[in-house]
């Protein structure tokens, strides 16, 4: 997105393509069976909005939350326009809440992309200790490394990510 704001059309096209696929599944998950056909319209509508309002993306904030705010607005607008009221028996209401995990998936996309920055050796270790929540001892045992070297590797990996994030922030602005 940062490259796109600077006017790089090729990375912009790549980004939009990825965003379009993501948006399609986002809308499909939220539209009732009878309205699935509207998903493509909504995707295109959202892409247009993203394009014309890209000046409102703030470079120091997560791209996905900005994108989701726009997609969510477009979805609500769509519901209003067509006077769609979701009526679900209260007993089934927890299904609605449980299905609203799109943000979590997007966050995971961000996290996994960030992990790619870390040196290969530490990637897996970070994933296990910081995301799956295994203890240092467990990881040390299953990989055959000593506990202290697991700690050091994880630490180095996180540092590499942090350094890259900081560098990115300054370089692109």
């Amino acid at each position: 997105m940062l490259a796109s704001l600077a006017g790089d059309a090729r990375s912009y096209a790549v980004l939009l393509d990825e965003v379009a696929r993501h948006l399609r599944s986002y809308f499909l998950r939220r539209l009732a069976d009878g309205h699935r056909g509207d998903a493509d319209d909504l995707v295109q509508d959202t892409l247009m909005a993203l394009h014309t309002r890209r000046a409102t993306y703030e470079v120091d904030r997560p791209f996905t939350s900005w994108l989701h705010a726009i997609a969510r607005y477009k979805l609500i607008d769509h519901f209003r326009r067509h006077r769609i009221r979701a009526t679900v028996p209260l007993d089934d209401a927890h299904d609605l809440i449980a299905s609203d995990d799109g943000e979590g998936i997007a966050d995971r996309m961000d996290v996994e992309r960030l992990l790619q920055i870390a040196p290969e050796k530490s990637r897996d270790l970070i994933y296990r200790t910081r995301i799956e929540g295994q203890s240092i001892a467990e990881v040390a045992q299953s990989t055959g490394l000593s506990e202290s070297s697991v700690k050091v590797t994880v630490h180095r990996g996180l540092k590499a990510i942090a350094a890259r994030l900081k560098g990115d922030g300054h370089g692109d602005r």
Binding site: A13, D40, Q44, A55, T56
Partner: peptide, 26 residues
């Protein structure tokens, strides 16, 4: 697919965003 056409058109229309374009509009 029409979405691909749209993406191509939007990418073709891309102009760099000026710093603080929002502030300027305000």
């Amino acid at each position: 697919m029409a979405t691909d056409d749209l993406i191509a058109r939007l990418a073709g229309d891309l102009k760099p965003v000026q710093p603080d374009q929002v502030g300027r509009r305000v």
